[in-house]
Simulated scan of single mutants.
Amino acid sequence: MTNDTPEAAEELRRLLRVMAALRDPERGCPWDREQDFDTIAPYTIEEAYEVADAIARRDWAALADELGDLLFQVVYHAQMAAEAGRFDFAAVARGITEKMIRRHPHVFGEARRENAAEQTEAWEAQKAAERAARAETGVLAGLPLALPALTRAAKLTRRAARVGFDWPDAAAVLDKLAEETEELRAELAQAERDPARLADEVGDMLFVLANLARKLELDPEACLRGANAKFERRFRAVEAALAAASRRPEEASLAEMEAHWQAAKAAERE
């Protein structure tokens, strides 16, 4: 099976025609005509997360659907750019194609890479050259502000680590986490708590945790998504246990809910 087929090309052309029709000034959809880059951007981010969710659930039928929604977002932005005379979908596709060829000389050129680590080093060097060509200077240049905060924290420190600014190992990061925890405790002990200082200390702790995930070669966003799913699963078990006794969470004591939580936790380990 391959995506490089006449059918794939025709379906993409059909999608582009649909998008143009939706944005037609006279006969298009009123909602679609009113949108701009700023109003569509949140939908683009949402669709990317829905793709990740379908993958996590291993729902391949849903993944095909979600990828279609994400592709539509790309087409939407390209259509608006074409209307403004900035660029079109062809420029988007050409740009990424040329970038991938440029970043993979071991596939499309004479150079050869012996292993994944060597390729990663070459990839990062190429990206650094591209940032320099765009006049983006500094080790941390080019990291989008719109990235999820945990992901951006990991990427910021990964960049810094490449020039030697890093903890030696995960144990050292844990020591830093303990230090930040004590600083937060000190703030909590103040008679008059300063919300700004509390936010600063909590931010420091989250930043260190993102670094810990990086040092352990884990994705901090994936770790937190897993924790969210676990909390949701166990809390629903608490609700189910209470419902079996004709009770609602707001009618139960914290001790009662904690007992059901521990039972749900134990059941997962069996």
Rank of each mutant, 00 (worst) to 15 (best):
P6I: 00
A9W: 10
R14M: 03
L22F: 09
L22S: 07
P25F: 05
E26V: 05
R33I: 01
R33H: 04
D36G: 13
F37I: 10
I45V: 15
D53C: 09
A61P: 01
A62E: 06
L63N: 11
Q73C: 14
Q73S: 12
A82Y: 08
G85E: 05
D88R: 06
A90D: 06
A91F: 12
T97I: 06
H104E: 08
H104V: 02
P105F: 04
H106V: 00
F108C: 03
R113N: 15
E121W: 03
A122H: 14
W123G: 14
A125P: 14
Q126I: 14
A128N: 13
A132L: 10
A133I: 04
A135F: 07
L150G: 10
L150V: 07
T151C: 14
L156N: 15
T157D: 15
R158I: 02
R158K: 10
R159D: 12
R159N: 13
A161V: 10
D169A: 05
A170R: 11
K176V: 11
K176C: 06
E180R: 09
L184F: 04
E187W: 15
L188S: 09
L188Y: 12
D194P: 01
A196N: 01
A196W: 01
L198A: 04
M205Y: 01
M205S: 06
L206H: 02
V208F: 07
L216Y: 08
L216G: 10
D219R: 13
R233A: 10
R234S: 00
A241D: 10
A241E: 12
A241Q: 07
A245Q: 15
P249S: 05
E251H: 00
E256Q: 15
E258L: 08
W261D: 02
E268I: 01
